[in-house]
Structure formats: structure tokens, C-alpha cells
């Protein structure tokens, strides 16, 4: 009994609230280095003159955002929060979900971020504090808490899709699903985009995988060799669509295609495609 008590780590929830608040503000003003580098690199490589100009304005936008503390995009998103909770943690001082939402509330108020959440999808009254957040939590080994705050804009979220393919559709079916989704998104999703793909699992599992795929470092390819190759091939094919920056033509339609997979049922091949604009925001902390 005493040994177990010694192992348990206490985390005061006010600490979680404070972190979430800071991360909401940070994510909306500063992109992670991999995203920033990827956009700057694309600017050098872009073949269309107008496309190059648009990418250079996107770079300038990032600089103004950081310097003047103006959000990169006015759609400061719905706050998607991933929690990886070490199983030896015990939270004290309230409820975890409340602490996360309090952090979002404080971050969006104090950070002058836009409140874009309505309490009921049909009645549509703004909650005026951007809560509730979408919280995905996972219990993992150990005593650490990893928090990822990913504010998600809806211009691109609206262009995302899910396909319940048949096993016989195979890899060609997956490729077709991704290309169709990107083509239909066209200029609406604010290209250059990041394409998050989830393959396998169940209906909801593949959707969560596709969201997680957006969090991965843009320069980092999947560990699995087949998936690694599929990512590269799909990025090339997506960029051959010619949609380009702002949807006004060019060779940079996507910055990356990130794929996550999971085991699935003998009868199914679920594929979810979560599109994110170039403002691919996520802030990560581990305590």
C-alpha cells in the first residue's frame, strides 16, 4: 500500500489550467518550426509566380503575427486538446475536464482570441468563451502528463471526409479517397494544406487517427515502410493536382501527407481525411 502511494504523482489541476491557457495563446501566434520551415521552403520551390507571391505573404503574415501578437488567422479555432496521462498520476483540486476548459476560457479571453464556439449545433448561440474544448485523453505508462493543444479552424475542417471503403478497394481506394478529398477542398481549405489521414480502426477511430496525423512533425515520415512510401507518393500526386497556394494554381497544394494506421475488421477499410490549412497549429508540453 505504502509503495503504491509513493509511486503516485500528484498534479494540481491549477497547473493544467495555466498550461492550457499559455498553450492556446502560443499556438495561435507562433507556428511550430517544422511548419514554418516547410512554408518557407515551399516558397523557394513554388513554380507559379502568383503562388510564390501568396506564399511570401503567408510568411510575412507569420512574422507580423509573432511580432505584433495578432493571431496568425482570425479563426483561432475550436480548441482540440490531446492528453496523454501517465497512469501513476493523480489529479487534485477538481475535475480534469473542468480544468482544461478553464484554461481554454482564460487563454481565449486573455489572448484576445476569437470565440468561435456555439453551445448547440442547431440553436447556435455563441458560448462567448470558446468552450467547451474537444478533449481526447489516453492513459499511458508512467508519471508524465503530455498535453497537446491544437486549435482547429473550420474552413479546412469542413472539407474533411470519411470513407468506409471495402477491403477489395485496397490501396488504390485509399489513394483515390485522399485525392478526391483534396480536389473537392480546392481553394476552400486555404492551401497549402496539411493532409492528415487515418486508415483502419472503426468509424470514429480512423477520424481520431486522421486528427492525430496532423500533429506529427511535417518532416517526419511514418515508421512503417509501406505507409512511408504511400505518404511520399500521395504528397507528389496531391501537388500534381495544381490547386496551388490560395487555390490559384501552383505546385504547392500540400506541405505534407501524414498517415496513421490501426488494426481493423475483416470486413472493413475505414479511411478518414482531416484537412488542415497552412496554419497547422499545435503546441506541446510534457510535465
Amino acid at each position: 500500500m505504502r509503495d503504491d502511494e509513493n509511486k503516485v504523482r500528484q498534479i494540481e489541476l491549477t497547473e493544467v489550467t495555466k498550461l492550457i491557457k499559455e498553450m492556446c495563446i502560443e499556438a495561435n501566434h507562433f507556428l511550430s518550426k517544422d511548419v514554418e520551415d516547410s512554408i518557407c521552403e515551399a516558397k523557394e520551390k513554388e513554380e507559379s509566380i502568383l503562388g510564390k507571391q501568396i506564399l511570401s505573404q503567408i510568411c510575412e503574415n507569420m512574422q507580423i503575427a509573432g511580432k505584433e501578437m495578432i493571431p496568425i488567422c482570425q479563426d483561432t479555432g475550436m480548441a482540440v486538446v490531446f492528453l496523454e496521462i501517465g497512469q501513476d498520476i493523480h489529479f487534485t483540486g477538481g475535475l480534469l475536464e473542468k480544468a482544461v476548459n478553464e484554461g481554454v476560457r482564460q487563454g481565449y479571453e486573455e489572448g484576445f482570441l476569437r470565440k468561435s464556439v456555439v453551445s448547440d449545433p442547431l440553436i447556435r448561440n455563441n458560448t462567448n468563451d470558446n468552450t467547451p474544448a474537444i478533449i481526447h485523453s489516453e492513459i499511458v505508462e508512467g508519471r508524465n502528463l503530455k498535453i497537446i493543444v491544437a486549435p482547429k479552424g473550420f474552413g479546412s475542417e469542413n472539407m474533411s471526409k470519411i470513407f468506409m471503403l471495402k477491403p477489395s478497394d485496397g490501396i488504390d481506394g485509399v489513394k483515390n479517397a485522399v485525392l478526391t478529398t483534396v480536389r473537392d477542398a480546392g481553394p476552400n481549405a486555404c492551401p497549402p494544406i496539411v493532409v492528415g489521414v487515418g486508415i483502419g480502426g472503426t468509424f470514429e477511430k480512423c477520424a481520431i487517427l486522421s486528427k492525430k496525423a496532423l500533429l506529427r512533425n511535417l518532416g517526419e515520415r511514418a515508421d512503417n515502410k509501406n505507409i512511408n512510401e504511400l505518404e511520399k507518393e500521395l504528397l507528389e500526386k496531391v501537388n500534381q493536382l495544381g490547386i496551388g497556394p490560395g487555390g490559384l494554381g501552383g505546385s504547392t497544394t500540400a506541405l505534407a501527407v501524414n498517415i496513421e494506421t490501426f488494426a481493423t475488421h475483416i470486413a472493413g477499410l475505414p479511411v478518414a481525411i482531416n484537412i488542415c490549412c497552412h496554419v497547422n497549429r499545435h503546441s506541446t508540453r510534457t510535465i
Partner: peptide
């Protein structure tokens, strides 16, 4: 079309703002 996702840059060209209707709608 204005450039999507370039809200900080575009804000620099806006010189004044007045709410004229439906203030209760916030943003």
C-alpha cells in the same frame, strides 16, 4: 478572394472599425 489564413497581414490594411448592426452576434 483575399489570402486565407493571412489575417494578421490583412489586418494592417484596416484603418477603422465600427459595429453597425447585430452587435449581439459578437465576431
Amino acid at each position: 478572394a483575399a489570402i486565407g489564413g493571412a489575417g494578421a497581414l490583412l489586418s494592417q490594411a484596416i484603418k477603422s472599425v465600427v459595429i453597425v448592426e447585430y452587435e449581439d452576434l459578437g465576431t
